[in-house]
Simulated scan of single mutants.
Amino acid sequence: MRVLKVAGYALAGVAVLVLFAAAGAFAASEAMIRWPVTGADKTVRLVSAKAGSAERGARLARLNGCHDCHGDRLEGRLFHDEMPVLRAWGPNLTRVAARDSDAELDAAIRRGVGGDGRRLWVMPSNAFAQLNDQETADLIAYIRSFPVTGEDQPHLQVGHLGRLGVLLGKFSSEPAMLKAGPPILADYGPQHAQGRDVARLCVECHGPDLKGMPLLKSPDLTMAASYEAADFQRLLHDGVAAGDRKLEGLMGSIARTRFSVLTDAEIAALYGYLKARAEREIAAAQ
Rank of each mutant, 00 (worst) to 15 (best):
L93C: 04
D41L: 11
P182Q: 11
T43R: 15
R118Q: 13
K246I: 09
L250W: 07
S145N: 06
R280L: 05
A137K: 05
L19M: 13
D41F: 11
A129Y: 01
G57K: 00
E55C: 06
M223F: 06
G189Y: 09
A107D: 12
D264T: 13
G8F: 14
S101W: 09
R62W: 06
S48T: 09
R163Y: 11
A28K: 07
A255V: 07
A51M: 03
E151N: 13
A127R: 02
G162K: 08
L221E: 00
L139N: 07
A31R: 14
V261S: 14
R144M: 11
A242L: 15
F171D: 00
R258C: 03
G252C: 09
L161W: 15
L93A: 04
T257E: 10
L201H: 04
G24A: 10
A97D: 01
V148C: 02
H160L: 12
H160P: 05
L161A: 13
Y9A: 13
G243T: 05
A103E: 07
S172K: 15
H70I: 02
D187T: 04
L19Y: 10
A278S: 15
G249W: 11
D231I: 04
N126A: 13
S145D: 06
G71W: 01
W35F: 11
R256T: 07
M83G: 04
R34F: 13
F26C: 08
R110E: 03
G8E: 13
Q194N: 04
G252N: 06
L46I: 08
A40D: 03
C69Q: 07
S172W: 09
P190Y: 07
T38S: 11
F79P: 03
L210E: 02
G165K: 10
I140S: 00
L167F: 12
A129H: 08
T136G: 05
Q134N: 08
G272Y: 10
A27E: 13
R59F: 01
A7M: 13
K211N: 08
A12I: 12
A127K: 00
A127V: 00
V37L: 08
V240C: 06
T38P: 05
R163A: 11
G52S: 07
M1W: 07
L168V: 09
P124N: 04
G212Y: 08
P124K: 03
L270N: 03
D133A: 15
I109P: 00
S173R: 04
F232I: 08
M251K: 05
V122H: 08
I33V: 15
A28W: 12
Q157S: 14
R118H: 10
L156P: 00
A255I: 06
D244Q: 14
K246W: 05
L86Q: 13
D244W: 06
G13W: 12
L216F: 15
D100R: 15
L164V: 13
G24E: 09
D133N: 11
Q233N: 14
V85G: 12
G114W: 02
L78P: 06
A51F: 02
N92Y: 08
I140A: 00
H70P: 01
L210V: 04
H67W: 07
L156G: 00
